[in-house]
Design a protein around this nucleic acid. Structure first.
Lengths: 294, 294
DNA sequence: TCCATGCCATACCTCCCAGGCATGGCGAGT
DNA sequence: ACTCGCCATGCCTGGGAGGTATGGCATGGA
């Protein structure tokens, strides 16, 4: 059975006559007549009653026409979707991203992706663990990771997407909070730190401790929190200062004053499978690159 | 685009190779290779990556294969349904029936229909008005009516399906309730009657009044009720006796004793459009006829 | 390293069938 | 009775689906 026969039977039903349908299909009436017979042979019964003038569908004909319309629409849609998928405009795409980046330009970038690729089933997975994100890409659970420090692996391609200073988020009114210019690293010794628990985000934790050692100060832990909103709440409550990517200032938490740390920087990297040449990945990278800054 | 190409692409994806698919399809590898190219030309992009050994689908290929499976299944289903519809085993069928018949064999018959024609979308509409039921058939709102007295109309075909006596339903302990043999018609003069309101079921109301006149007695109205269950409740409460088709004794209402009326009978008729030669109607009539009794 | 093996692509051929043309039968309206 | 429009049938043709032969290429083992 072929779609051709289905379009014929649908047209015949719509026109109510073989010759009318033949005109619409740019065929001759005998051809169509014969094709209709062939379909009726396959179905094993009449699809139309020949009533002298024109044809009226039998119950079998009506059932077939009703379903044929669906099949034809589905077939068209299948081709269309394949075309779109070939251009990276359709399909499924899973992004895993660092939760610590979502308050910065990453949030806007993901929104832009959704708007520019409306027919793409875009799935997002937040994570706090860099190794886990890279691994998810390697394991084909995700197509792209946007994360801090990617795993070093020949099977992974990476590109720096965003760079910004680390910023010390201070309790409002704290002596360090005065002055708009960046604070020296030594400031880390003048206030207890509010950190992620190491088991939640080891890289972030270790990086901040390393910063302290680099500045020659011994870190004091004021409190630990499992989310950015908790960290900032603890800062506002006076437990200490939190070191986060500068873009978190977008939160404007009441009772918290941000002050960049001189000489620091943190980055967000795009990470994908080196072998992945899918058009969807290309397009996603293009959109993201437009919004990023090395 | 033809279904043939879709089956090819699905098979190729399943086999992971053109030659494997060719074996399964009883084709040669070059033919299949060329057909795949043709489909890729129509889609406007590659559907598979040629990786030396075998093929792996591109995103476009995966999307197409996923949808092609649906299309193929739908197409098969369309043909199947048309075949079934041609044999009267599929489609939609609407029956309107006299509510006064549902406690008799009609209930069982409708259940049998549902079981024997499981793929038919069987719709039921109860009614109490004979003219309305016949009219619904004429107007093509229903395909079959099972009713008391059909409209006389050349466009309608009718057949007596069931015949049974009218039965007087009496309050338990009433003098007339003694004796198993049919009661004479004159019994209608010895007890007030519990009737349908004339506006609800004019035929039924008039028929009972006519019975009384025929017996030479003047009917007394004890009460009126809008449903069989109300009528019987009123009988049990002692308001009088109700005249109903004998099969209502299946209700075994507490406090009510049935006693047939000698010399009476009432029938249920099948009514359909004389011009309706649909296989579904044929089959429904066949099933019903097996269970009926003239 | 070289051959064997199995895969896909291309070139060429054949034959089937979709589609065209001519014609005949038939019902409906004038 | 005539005509018009419709469907069915017979016959013919051309394009394309499918087959055969062959070559290129990657993989894997001696």
């Amino acid at each position: 059975m072929e779609l051709r026969l289905l379009t014929y039977v649908v047209t015949i039903a719509e026109e109510g006559s073989v010759s009318g349908a033949a005109r619409r299909l740019h065929l001759t009436q005998p051809t169509l007549s014969r094709q209709l017979r062939e379909l009726e042979r396959q179905v094993g019964g009449a699809l139309f009653d020949r009533t002298g003038r024109g044809l009226t569908p039998t119950p079998a004909g009506e059932a077939l026409v009703r379903r044929a319309r669906v099949v034809l629409a589905e077939a068209r849609a299948a081709l269309d979707e394949a075309r779109l998928a070939g251009q990276g405009l359709s399909g499924r795409f899973t992004v895993t991203f660092a939760g610590s980046g979502i308050n910065g330009p990453l949030g806007a970038a993901l929104g832009r992706l959704r708007r520019e690729l409306p027919r793409v089933d875009l799935r997002l997975r937040e994570s706090f663990n860099d190794a886990e994100m890279s691994q998810a890409v390697l394991d084909d659970h995700c197509d792209l990771a946007v994360q801090r420090l990617p795993l070093r692996d020949a099977r992974l391609a990476t590109r720096l997407w965003w760079r910004e200073p680390m910023t010390l988020f201070l309790p409002e009114g704290h002596p360090l909070a005065h002055g708009a210019e960046p604070a020296p690293l030594s400031a880390l010794g003048q206030i207890p730190l509010v950190l992620w628990p190491r088991e939640v985000s080891p890289r972030s934790h270790d990086e901040i401790i390393a910063l302290c050692h680099h500045a020659g100060v011994v870190p004091r832990i004021g409190a630990e929190g499992h989310s950015v909103q908790t960290l900032l709440a603890l800062v506002a409550a006076g437990f200490g200062g939190a070191v986060l990517a500068d873009s978190h200032r977008a939160l404007r938490r009441v009772g918290v004053t941000p002050r960049p740390l001189a000489g620091t920087s943190t980055g967000l990297y795009l990470v994908w499978r080196a072998g992945d040449t899918g058009p969807l990945l290309q397009r996603v990278r293009t959109v993201l690159t437009e919004l990023g800054q090395g």
